[in-house]
C-alpha cells in the first residue's frame, strides 16, 4: 500500500525485559505492508516477549521500533491501537462474560463510528461467530475463542496484527482453519506478525521468518528459504 521505502514495522536492535533483566538482547525485525512475518525459536528465546515489547507491554531499554516510519517504542497500548496496531494475546484473549458481539465492539472502542461496517467484515471473515454473536464468549470452544480474539483485534482496522501463538492448544482441524483465516486477513491488506510453535506450517505461509534464540536473531530470511535451510531444520524444526 504505502511506498516501499517505509516498512510497516521496523525493529532495530531491541533490548528489553522485566525488572531490569533483559530478555531481548538486540532483536531486528522488518516487515513490509501486506507481509506475513513469523517468529519461531525454542522456549525462552523471547518470541512472545518481542511481541509484547512491540505492543508496549514491556519496557524497551535500548533500540527502537518504527511503525510506518514513526517511533513507537514504549508507547502505551491504547495509543498503539490508535496508530493501527492490533494485538491478540495467547491466553485470556476474550472477555468471557461479554457476548461475542460485545467482545467485537470492544475492539472498536476507539472508533465507535466504524462498528457496523467492521462487524460485517469480521463476520465475513469468521462466519461461525455470526451464529454465536449473542452467546457469552466464555462458553465458546478454544478455536472459536481464538476467532473472537482475532476478530476483536481486527475491529480497530489495524494495519499490523500481532498474534501470539494463535494455534496453541487447538486441534489440527482448527489449526488449519486459523492459518487459513490468517492468510485471508493478510490478503485483505493487513500485515501480520505472529509467534508460532507449529513452525513448519507457519513458515510455509510466511513472507519473512525470524528464528530467535537467547533474545537475538539467529536466522532471518523468507519463510521458504528458512524451511529449506538445513541448519534451521536441524536445530529448530525438529529435523
Amino acid at each position: 500500500m504505502s511506498s516501499t521505502t517505509r516498512p510497516l514495522i521496523d525493529a532495530r536492535d531491541v533490548h528489553g525485559g522485566y525488572g531490569g533483566m533483559n530478555i531481548l538482547n538486540g532483536v531486528n525485525m522488518t516487515l513490509e505492508a501486506d507481509e506475513v512475518g513469523v517468529i519461531v525459536g525454542p522456549n525462552g528465546a523471547g518470541k512472545s516477549t518481542m511481541l509484547k515489547a512491540a505492543f508496549g507491554l514491556l519496557h524497551i531499554n535500548q533500540g527502537e521500533i518504527l511503525l510506518n516510519g514513526q517511533p513507537i517504542q514504549n508507547l502505551p497500548p491504547n495509543q498503539l491501537v490508535q496508530r493501527g496496531m492490533g494485538f491478540v494475546p495467547q491466553e485470556k484473549n476474550v472477555f468471557p462474560s461479554l457476548s461475542v458481539q460485545e467482545n467485537l465492539e470492544m475492539g472498536a472502542f476507539l472508533k465507535p463510528q466504524n462498528v457496523k461496517r467492521m462487524l460485517a467484515q469480521v463476520y465475513d471473515f469468521f462466519p461461525p461467530l455470526y451464529e454465536k454473536r449473542r452467546q457469552p464468549a466464555g462458553e465458546l470452544s478454544g478455536g472459536q475463542r481464538q476467532m473472537v480474539a482475532m476478530g476483536r483485534a481486527l475491529m480497530a482496522e489495524p494495519s499490523l496484527l500481532l498474534l501470539d501463538e494463535p494455534t496453541a492448544g487447538l486441534s489440527p482441524l482448527y489449526m488449519n482453519e486459523i492459518f487459513d483465516r490468517v492468510k485471508k486477513i493478510n490478503a485483505a491488506g493487513v500485515g501480520i506478525l505472529m509467534v508460532e510453535q507449529n513452525a513448519k506450517q507457519a513458515l510455509a505461509i510466511a513472507d519473512k521468518g525470524f528464528v530467535l534464540a537467547a533474545g537475538q536473531n539467529r536466522f532471518t530470511d523468507t519463510g521458504t528459504a528458512l524451511l529449506a535451510n538445513p541448519d534451521v531444520a536441524k536445530s529448530f524444526l525438529g529435523g
Binding site: P76, P89, K92, F95, L98, M106, F109
Partner: peptide
C-alpha cells in the same frame, strides 16, 4: 452503553481491555 460495556470488559479482563484501546 459503550462505556458500560467497556466497564464490564475491564472487570472481565483488565489487560485485554487495555490492549483493546479502552482507556
Amino acid at each position: 452503553s459503550r462505556l458500560g460495556k467497556a466497564m464490564r470488559a475491564m472487570s472481565d479482563n483488565p489487560e485485554l481491555a487495555q490492549a483493546s484501546g479502552i482507556n
